[in-house]
Design a protein around this nucleic acid. Structure first.
Lengths: 191, 191
DNA sequence: TCAACTAACTAACGTTTGTTAGTATTTGTA
DNA sequence: TACAAATACTAACAAACGTTAGTTAGTTGA
């Protein structure tokens, strides 16, 4: 299996942008082809189907999250630091590849039945690992004891809206953004 | 203007459920008609268009948020308490009318150009009022001084994923859910 | 009792959809 | 330079889309 062609990468990239903007169902192959600069039919020299585009975007981005979580799990640092790194990574993903993250978050439900099962398995595994990180942090006294699921989803969802909110050109650097979100989640808002 | 017919309410309710499940573009009028129990064409005796359905769901739910925020602004209680009430209200909305909340959050981008402008205006006003609540809480020393926008969106987004995650029948009551989310956002996770 | 209204139906419309077939053109290599 | 492969094109497909037209049965009010 050779390296993926540049044209296919372009198709996936433009597709992610359009899916974010208009949704998977709201984006036609002709819309997409126009952005890519070729005819709709010509895209089928590079991709198998519209479904395949969605799959590659979802699983491509998903894999990046998995890899980073594994990497951080492996490191010999304390749990608050691990959580900070994960938060910073989520922010970075959104800033560097926000369109793909948006598709991952919003359009996975249009995956075919079997791919959707596969996707959910991947996502469940990710959440389980992330939850374990919180749980161990609690057990070692770094975090307050609380419902792990609620803590997990409160954190993940707080990170999610960065994608809806962040616009390049706002007067907030990604470092400040990650720092303030970390601060609020770690220390709360109460003075 | 008389009261809205029961059939129209049924259409809106079933539409919200389908839009949540398959998206606005992914839901056909024939899908919807089947859930309602009549033919697609018959629905046009009750609604003007598919777009109108989306509008009524988005603005209907939006109005509820506006009203509750105004109500809480009016009350003579301190800012941490106001924030707690808003958090509890968001949780309640999701539990009581999760489908409409999902449409409000995810499908507003399929509104017609003019309705979308109107929607954004409504949403901006809501966010501005909510932000003012946080800002005043900071100025009075109840909350830590921090970037108000980031605090606002961290909180709103943390609440948003409740809709994606909450399933009736999980062993978490809506009171516990609101309490734990409040606790994490107000006091942080760090021990 | 009859006219008006409501709400359902069937049939069909013009578009748009994802995709395929068949063909031309460009590109890389011997 | 010539052959082969990759990649583009045009044309068309069947299916699904939102919506309209025309009609029919049942209900309501005068």
């Amino acid at each position: 299996m050779k390296t993926r062609s540049a044209k296919k990468d372009l198709i996936l990239q433009e597709a992610a942008k359009l899916f974010r903007e208009k949704g998977f169902g709201g984006t036609s192959m002709r819309d997409l082809a126009e952005k890519v600069g070729i005819e709709a039919a010509s895209m089928y020299n590079h991709i198998r189907s519209k479904d395949e585009i969605l799959e590659e975007i979802c699983f491509g981005a998903g894999r990046k999250y998995d890899e980073q979580l594994s990497e951080i799990e492996r490191q010999d640092i304390n749990y608050p630091r691990k959580l900070e790194l994960m938060i910073a990574f989520h922010v970075q993903m959104i800033i560097e590849d926000g369109a793909a993250v948006s598709v991952l978050n919003n359009d996975w439900k249009f995956l075919s039945a079997e791919k959707m099962t596969e996707f959910k398995t991947m996502r469940n595994a990710y959440e389980k690992h992330f939850a374990a990180l919180l749980k161990q942090g609690m057990e070692q006294g770094f975090f307050k004891p609380m419902n792990v699921s609620i803590a997990l989803f409160t954190i993940l969802s707080a990170l999610r809206w960065v994608e809806l909110w962040y616009k390049p050109g706002r007067n907030v650097s990604k470092e400040d953004l990650a720092k303030d979100i970390s601060a609020l989640l770690m220390n709360g808002i109460k003075a």
